[in-house]
């Protein structure tokens, strides 16, 4: 079973994603960027779903540090911040998808399934 790490300061947002994706995955969770980086090194997830606006370090900074930690980390960014800068920067940093909140369930499911099936997780 693939493991997905959810990094989002909103419990509501993490629960919403888990409700969409269902029980076919194992979840690890972190409510801020620094804890997200720690959780990544503990759980070695197959995929990370990452928020941008968080209380300590932003999701974009997390993504930058994560790249140094694991060049092959698979990350989907989900953010309420719709500015093009964030999307472009996230993709430059190697995010595999950028989804605006409120996330459309089909879009999230398609993105996750396609990434995990390509990586064989």
């Amino acid at each position: 079973m693939a493991t997905i790490l959810l990094v989002d300061d909103s419990t509501f947002a993490r629960n919403f994603v888990k409700r969409i994706l269902g029980d076919q995955y194992t979840y690890a969770e972190a409510s801020n960027g620094n804890d997200g980086l720690k959780a990544y090194s503990i759980h070695h997830p197959d995929l990370v779903i990452l928020d941008v606006t968080m209380p300590d370090i932003s999701g974009l900074e997390v993504l930058e540090q994560l790249r140094k930690q694991d060049a092959h980390a698979q990350v989907v960014v989900c953010s309420a911040d719709i500015q093009d800068y964030n999307r472009n920067r996230a993709m430059e940093l190697g995010a595999l998808a950028f989804l605006n909140k409120p996330v459309k369930p089909d879009a999230l499911l398609d993105a996750i399934r396609s990434i995990l099936s390509e990586s064989g997780a």
């Binding site: 909103s10 919403f16 606006t53 953010s79 309420a80 719709i82 500015q83 093009d84 909140k101």
Partner: peptide
Amino acid sequence: MEVGNILLNAFVGSFGN
């Protein structure tokens, strides 16, 4: 809070774009 976050980001963020 999440509703507010999404709504306000969409509002102000569209100014940015």
